[in-house]
Write a protein that binds this DNA or RNA. Sequence first.
DNA 1: AAATAATCGAAACATTATAACATTTCTTTC
DNA 2: GAAAGAAATGTTATAATGTTTCGATTATTT
Lengths: 162, 162
Amino acid sequence: MSKPAFLPHDHNHQRCIDAALAEARAICQRKHSRLTPQREQVLRLIWQEHRPIGAYELLDKLREEGLKAAPPTVYRALEFLQENGLIHRIESLNAYTGCSHPSEPHASQFLVCQQCQRVAELGSEQIAEQLSEQARRAGFASAHQTVEIRGTCAECLRHFHV
Amino acid sequence: MSKPAFLPHDHNHQRCIDAALAEARAICQRKHSRLTPQREQVLRLIWQEHRPIGAYELLDKLREEGLKAAPPTVYRALEFLQENGLIHRIESLNAYTGCSHPSEPHASQFLVCQQCQRVAELGSEQIAEQLSEQARRAGFASAHQTVEIRGTCAECLRHFHV
DNA sequence: AAATAATCGAAACATTATAACATTTCTTTC
DNA sequence: GAAAGAAATGTTATAATGTTTCGATTATTT
């Protein structure tokens, strides 16, 4: 995978959304996973935000779009999207964000900006390896890593002199 | 700091508890932080478990010990203990665990066993450094790292052949 | 002792997540 | 294309986690 990237605040985000949805459709078709209209709608709503979005925020947006949805509706969609690698859950925020390169399995470490709330994936296999290795030295067999770094992104550093 | 350690399942845990409480009292005295009876009680209850414990579990235990406690009682104590580096919050479990070496500030990565629910601290400055460095290359200023590895500890690997 | 700050009590409320079970829709098989 | 089975969705209720607010109490300082 490529380098981590916080896109400029003013980039054309519609392109991100369109690309993400197209990629998701392709992936699900390949895997015979059923990206139903509802699931795609949730994925689109997630991508429409620039920042991780909570389950109940999603629920509100679904309702704004006319769907008669209850919490399980959202959580089921989120579960499907996670299982298919299309979104990530940010544990430290209880929120969900679109995966920026869902086509290949990858290590995922997250940079979470405290100013603008945006998230970027680091995706360093090296770090993932090293974590697994250090764990192994303690006799521990790693199954899944949660790596989230809070801080300030480059753009916010410039703007706010934090 | 020293090597990460899952102690044997059958170690004398009372010693861990006593040592942790003694160290906590010393630290708080040094810092003029007020380790009140309630706060110490919460810390003890956390150490009495071998695994991370949730806020509401703690609440139940406080009540079992005769305290008339409400959620804020617990959360305030947890906040104090965290601020003073005496406990850690495990984000992926929404639960709290005693810090195994509170006297010195340290990097903290956690190994979380899915079988026995116990947690060990990795404490690798090297990994912490590397994460900060990778973030910095993306122009990102790190403030806090959450690193949690789910998997199976050595003892559970032997016992359960997972 | 009075003033100030820190801690605690209590009630209400807010947020996040799941359980249980009925119904509908899609897919497969005949 | 009809029946059977599997997957997805609807619905209601509830569990689990976390916060706000405000008043009372206790500790510390002056």
